[in-house]
């Protein structure tokens, strides 16, 4: 779980450090780290089990395509490679946004946030295209355990990306309205954590679902 020894030391240090605190000035974080970030990381830890379950369901059924198309037949690797690349690069633009806001460079923050959202949208567009063309080629949601598991896994991921886009856009508009200040850099960082997490999930999916379909 957590390394309690370290925590303990930190708590003691935090206690020492805040000796001068006034009455009623409450403990500002026994571990000295931010509540919000800790919460996000706890949530991401939990998400590992969510995606782990979805991926396991897929692995279990990947070869069970009944009469429908099989994974290796239907995947369009060049196309998916491009959209994977797009998502990967959106992680870069995301950190650039964070780095811009920590510098207090708000125009550039907005630029990078918008680029990130846009790249995310391109990825989603690609997924919509992919799903429709699979459907036309005979891979419906109910075709086989493989198809159900595939669409569920990648669909869940797509929903995560879309929620990330919504968060990015609200960051963007707050920034436009001057509400996203330099001291709110942590908010950008937290949205970024979520975004990168969604990206690493795709790194996993791209390899295990798409690229490995060929070999087995």
């Amino acid at each position: 779980m957590v390394d309690s020894e370290v925590l303990d030391e930190q708590a003691v240090e935090a206690a020492d450090a805040s000796h001068s605190a006034k009455v009623g000035d409450h403990q500002p974080g026994s571990t000295g780290i931010s509540n919000q970030k800790l919460a996000m990381w706890a949530f991401l830890g939990s998400e590992c089990l969510l995606f782990g379950g979805l991926i396991s369901g897929y692995l279990l059924y990947r070869n069970n395509n009944q009469d429908g198309p099989a994974a290796a037949e239907i995947f369009d690797i060049p196309f998916t490679s491009v959209s994977s690349f797009v998502l990967l690069m959106s992680s870069l633009t995301m950190v650039l946004a964070l780095s811009a806001i920590t510098r207090g460079d708000h125009p550039r923050t907005r630029l990078w946030i918008l680029t990130t959202a846009l790249l995310g949208a391109v990825f989603i567009g690609g997924q919509v295209y992919e799903f429709t063309s699979f459907y036309r080629e005979g891979l419906g949601y109910t075709t086989s355990p493989f198809s159900s598991a595939f669409f569920t896994l990648t669909g869940f991921h797509g929903v995560h990306v879309s929620m990330g886009i919504v968060m990015l856009m609200s960051l963007y508009f707050s920034s436009v309205r001057g509400k996203l200040k330099t001291e709110n850099a942590e908010t950008v960082e937290i949205v970024g954590l979520y975004w990168h997490f969604v990206d690493v999930v795709w790194i996993f999916i791209f390899t295990v679902v798409y690229l490995m379909a060929k070999g087995i």
């Binding site: 779980m1 970030k37 590992c48 089990l49 782990g52 991926i55």
Partner: peptide, 18 residues
């Protein structure tokens, strides 16, 4: 390092049980 612990806990647990 606490963040890493949270995340790795999730990853390892997920890998283990699944």
């Amino acid at each position: 390092p606490m963040f890493t612990k949270f995340f790795v806990a999730g990853l390892v647990l997920a890998a283990g049980v699944y």
